[in-house]
Design a protein around this nucleic acid. Structure first.
Length: 107
DNA sequence: CGTCTGACGATAT
DNA sequence: TATATCGCCAGAC
């Protein structure tokens, strides 16, 4: 655990059910970070835990452009394998696959 | 301790 | 709808 903040983020991501996706901003809110989506992305960048990072996408409903293009393909494949479909532009219908958490109130 | 950068989000144009 | 800009926090140098 790099910091308690990161651990909180990983914990939220691990709660994302299969076949669903969550945005960085949503995770940040559930983790109690407010709307600091950047921290979520940065946390995943330094992730040392086996979290389902492939279920984490940006607010536009698409996979963020990261350094390793290979991981990007992997993310698309993993999501497709779970039933998540992409449109012609390579974007996900958030209104359909977005994970709706009911425990936004952590403590 | 100052500065730059980064898996983002929202708003403006 | 796409592009450009600012704000946010934490880590690397």
């Amino acid at each position: 655990m790099t910091s308690e903040t990161y651990d909180r983020i990983y914990e939220v991501i691990e709660q994302i059910p299969e076949g669903n996706v969550a945005t960085y901003g949503q995770i940040a809110r559930l983790a109690g970070l407010g709307g600091h989506a950047r921290l979520v992305g940065y946390a995943l960048h330094a992730c040392d835990r086996p979290v389902p990072w492939h279920r984490v996408i940006n607010a536009r409903g698409e996979v963020s452009d990261r350094a390793d293009a290979y991981a990007e393909q992997l993310q698309h494949r993993l999501l497709a394998k779970e039933g998540v479909r992409f449109d012609e532009r390579g974007r996900i219908a958030l209104e359909q696959f977005r994970w709706e958490d009911e425990e936004a109130d952590a403590e």
